[in-house]
Design a protein around this nucleic acid. Structure first.
Lengths: 230, 230
DNA sequence: TTAATATTGTCTCATATTGAGACAATATTA
DNA sequence: TAATATTGTCTCAATATGAGACAATATTAA
């Protein structure tokens, strides 16, 4: 794609949350030959909606359409302008002179978080990256630029909105148990919740549909499966 | 300022809320010879933090420093790219050829809302505008581009966060009565609140400091004045 | 000087919500 | 058939909320 196909100075970064069943994880890219870890991000086509650009990028990394996506902040501090970082990445990938000099400019980044069903995703690296993989939120590697701050703010926003909207079902498969749902809440909030109270509250929302029981073979009463009422 | 002093494609718009004592109002600019109304906005210097650019712009319009400011969304749809609007504005101000052609490009706009004490402000127009003045939120004129949508989202965000943070004191003078505070809440929420319950809740937060009574000359019990506990 | 009036600060009471534990129901294994 | 772990639901106390009631004023009218 020729360089003038993207808007200058504007980037996006996405914090893709997944839930393994125990822990919250996010997707990180590792760049070729640099040891640099970064959030999956990209640029906005000159004839493309900002939100569409982010969905396009997520589709490339995760293969998923119709992802739950929320824009939460735009980072525009000067401290995030470190051309030497991008220079290193480009040099590790065959150097400049490929019409990629525009990447060395200052960028303002619009940040989004996505909530997706961990098991549906096979992460895909891009041309500049060795890998795109899941990392535990509580043991992340060092990230480039201000990406650690972006992750922090994403989690804060998610927590802040948790009791306003039932978004956590996006982190689970279509059918899930009440315990699965509680595990997601506890992973996001970082604290234990009372089982009876949690169950009462979730059922009280009136948006969960109860299905048949899930017989796992465990030596105990089988839990109901639920789905999100659409 | 030469054109290359600003980052291309990036703008900001600000929804400045003030409270007249009865109604919520916002600041609007009216452009010379066009009848166009718009939110106060601006651009980001190449060596300037995004947040600082917004504070600089607000300082020019309101004369105020240390304003309560919150970034709430970044608007990047293609539909907001209407170069003919900016062209009309520029032609009404002496035409192009002044090195202002970059204003005809596509812009992504980072939107902020500010909460300020209405009485502290003497609105100041800029070079392109006839006026910068307060308008009732419920009887706004037609705004350019997507500015009506920006206002709508600003109000939604303000409402959504209203019971999480005590931000409304930013809309009042240093000393205010409980009724003043309740009026602000009612104006933002668009509904009446029960007096006793409201008072109990606000005092229960433990962040209001009670001062002497306010004797206004009205034929009734004088209310206490409060300030925000810092 | 006293009564009338509007508004305030606070209280009470009914209702709703929340936090924490208790208990029966069950799906499996010993 | 008993033991065990976990689930669904209930109960009860503690808290919070919604709505009205009432005494305490600051002023005006009589």
């Amino acid at each position: 794609m020729p360089q003038n196909s993207y808007l200058k100075h504007i980037a996006y970064d996405s914090v893709v949350f997944g839930f393994s069943g125990e822990k919250l994880k996010i997707l990180l890219m590792k760049y070729h030959n640099t040891g640099f870890y970064a959030l999956p991000g990209g640029f906005v086509g000159v004839s493309e909606n900002l939100n569409d650009a982010v969905r396009r990028g997520l589709k490339e990394r995760t293969g998923l359409d119709n992802i739950y996506l929320e824009q939460f902040y735009t980072f525009g501090n000067l401290e995030r302008y470190k051309p030497e970082v991008m220079q290193t990445i480009l040099e590790a990938n065959g150097g400049l002179g490929n019409g990629l000099e525009w990447l060395l400019d200052r960028f303002i980044s619009v940040a989004y978080f996505a909530l997706i069903n961990y098991k549906d995703v096979i992460p895909q690296p891009d041309a500049l990256s060795d890998s795109c993989d899941w990392y535990d939120l509580d043991t992340l590697p060092t990230l480039i630029l201000d990406h650690a701050e972006i992750v922090k703010k994403a989690l804060e926003t998610l927590r802040f909105n948790l009791d306003r909207k039932l978004v956590t079902t996006n982190l689970l498969p279509t059918y899930f148990t009440m315990k699965d749902l509680q595990n997601v809440y506890e992973a996001i909030l970082g604290e234990k919740l009372h089982r009876g109270t949690f169950q009462r509250k979730m059922l009280g929302l009136g948006v969960l549909k109860r299905h048949e029981k899930q017989y796992t073979g465990a030596a105990n009463k089988a839990p109901f499966l639920y789905s999100f009422e659409d």
